[in-house]
Design a protein around this nucleic acid. Sequence first.
DNA 1: GAATCATTCATACGTTCGTTTGAATTGGTT
DNA 2: AACCAATTCAAACGAACGTATGAATGATTC
Lengths: 206, 206
Amino acid sequence: MNDSKNTRSRILDVAEELFSEQGIDRVSIRDITAAAEVNLGAINYHFGSKEDLIAAVFERRIVPVNAARLVALQTVRESTRKQPRVEDILAAFIRPTVECSGGKARGERAFSKLFGRCLSEPSPEVEAMLKRQFEPLVEQLESALMMALPKLSRSDIFWRLKFTFGALHHWHLTRDKFLPAGLDPGDVEEQIQKLIAFTAAGFQAA
Amino acid sequence: MNDSKNTRSRILDVAEELFSEQGIDRVSIRDITAAAEVNLGAINYHFGSKEDLIAAVFERRIVPVNAARLVALQTVRESTRKQPRVEDILAAFIRPTVECSGGKARGERAFSKLFGRCLSEPSPEVEAMLKRQFEPLVEQLESALMMALPKLSRSDIFWRLKFTFGALHHWHLTRDKFLPAGLDPGDVEEQIQKLIAFTAAGFQAA
DNA sequence: GAATCATTCATACGTTCGTTTGAATTGGTT
DNA sequence: AACCAATTCAAACGAACGTATGAATGATTC
């Protein structure tokens, strides 16, 4: 068990959790190193700078998620010769964001919030990274949706996809917040099905 | 023309624009006072602290918007004896967020981004303020939606409303970002209609 | 026109931030 | 045992932060 790897990955895990909980700007590298029980200099040694750590934290999650999305999308396209189902396309887009979180418990929640937060982080570096990571995915998504919904204009596809992004990420970000008392939130699978049903119906609106 | 009022409102305007553009945590009070061309001490003098300024900036916009939403919602309920239309309820929820922005141009964009940002700000103070400002509105919204869609469970209403929140706020936050080249974004009215149509269809999903 | 109040101003305080430095420590190789 | 590269460590750096202070300035009232 390499000790360096331990330090590095412990920093990544702690940073992910703190970023998820408080947002990037409210977490100092001293917060991270203290919680990870590593030396203050460890972040700059292993990652170079705070910005590089931020990129590493987000990319560690987003890269495999978007890769899984592209694979799932390709599967949908291949399994249907003519028109893919909207639900299947949206499921290919939505499901990997929960399935790639690995274990459950608080690790899952941290990832979920981190993922939800990434689209609302005001940092220009994060925004540039998002654009890079999401561009090919959005392209494939739009193309698949145009096949599934040939009546829709490019503009309609674009905006409805944006609404879907918003619903998905807001769900990730606040799924354990603002819960009214006495309402059973149900399990994750239920919530995902609700989200897919909601957005699929939105796409199929007249 | 009271000079104090000028300073106070100039601070509010500048703070709103900077918060919208960069997020709360990335804007220092020195940024604000410099852009507003007022003295560094002006913020602490007029508002007490940065936290109080933040609250003032958000509440100045959210209070009238949520008030207008409640009025519009009441109008919908009164104009229909039995079942209100889902589209009308959602319009009562969505339209005030653009109509209360006052003038157009960059002022509107600043308000729009500020509004989109408020739900994703990680500050606990902002979150507490949101809960206070949105609780009565959400109550009315859920009640009206249950009348319009009696087949839906409370849980369904809750989650679909959350998805709607996400779509609305993400639209506000990024409506001039990630626009693909060669796509006419259309005007605001078009986009709102698309959003209402999308979410209304989502609510009416089987 | 003197006194009183609200506002503006320049300046400084203490804290926290990201980063750097150079020495100490570790683990593996010869 | 000696060496070397990788890693950890304590300490310090300058910059930026929110806030506080007391003197100047302006307007209002008597």
